[in-house]
Design a protein around this nucleic acid. Structure first.
Lengths: 140, 140
DNA sequence: AGATAAATGATAATCATTTGCAAGAAGGTG
DNA sequence: CACCTTCTTGCAAATGATTATCATTTATCT
């Protein structure tokens, strides 16, 4: 059901439906948490060897534009991707030990709105991620 | 005065004082706002041609460890560096049009503390940056 | 000044991502 | 269905930012 909806949306935006795009959409939906491009590539390859990195990246970029996927970064050198429409807007607790990315629903939106108004700044986006050690990793 | 303090601190950490390190420290202090490694490289080169990228990066990393410099990223592919000790802890309004990085003093620290406690998460760091269009760029 | 360990620069490597382009496939049309 | 146009793909190479290697130079200690 979900995959179909996304593909229909792409279709609506004038994009063609290809085997590769279906794979990427399925991979994104299959993951509960943010995934790296490499992770998505691996997941797609398990199903079908016929997909390459450039296509992964191009498709992800397309999905970000279609607002189906959110592109995140947590301080490292790579980006992370997650389905944007499965959940409400959210942020994460990022464990620097095991890499876990636990979603949290709190958001400093009022603070952002106030500060923006004060500076006559037009807000388009914001970054908010909490980095540290998760419960599991604290006990070694 | 400030450069000397920083260099003395490095000395205290067992680091040797070199012409190149002085250049980097001066460059960091000369900039009011976050600077990229490239920007720092250029600034150093204007004073003295004898400095290379590897040294820039190594020195910046050292300064980050010495907690003299903060390493930031705003969603792009590069890191930004700013003097950590000139100001209090702060975040930024990042203009996606002109690249301006305006410091703001508000911080969702209570929210972070609450959420961490709720999840038994040990906070080590956090990202918080507001992205959008600055006042100047709004009027085209 | 001389010894020693640390720091540097040149060069090459790395990592994640993007681009150029020829070949292949999607979807509208007759 | 066959055809045509245009979009997509994969390969290979390019890119941008940063890091590693290693021989040479230099700061600091004695």
């Amino acid at each position: 059901m979900e995959t179909e909806q996304v593909l229909a949306r792409l279709r609506g935006l004038g994009r063609r439906l290809t085997r590769q795009r279906s794979l990427v959409v399925e991979a994104i939906l299959a993951g509960e948490r943010p995934q790296s491009a490499e992770g998505i590539y691996q997941r797609c390859r398990e199903k079908d060897r016929g997909i390459s990195y450039p296509t992964i990246y191009r498709t992800l970029e397309m999905l970000v534009e279609a607002e189906v996927v959110r592109k995140l970064h947590f301080g490292g050198s790579k980006y992370w991707y997650e389905a944007a429409w499965q959940r409400e807007h959210h942020h994460h607790l990022v464990c620097l030990e095991c890499g876990a990315k636990e979603p949290i629903m709190v958001c400093p939106r009022e603070l952002i709105a106030r500060e923006a108004q004060r500076n006559q700044f037009k807000v388009l986006d914001h970054q908010f991620e909490i980095l540290g050690i998760c419960k599991d990793c604290q006990g070694r």
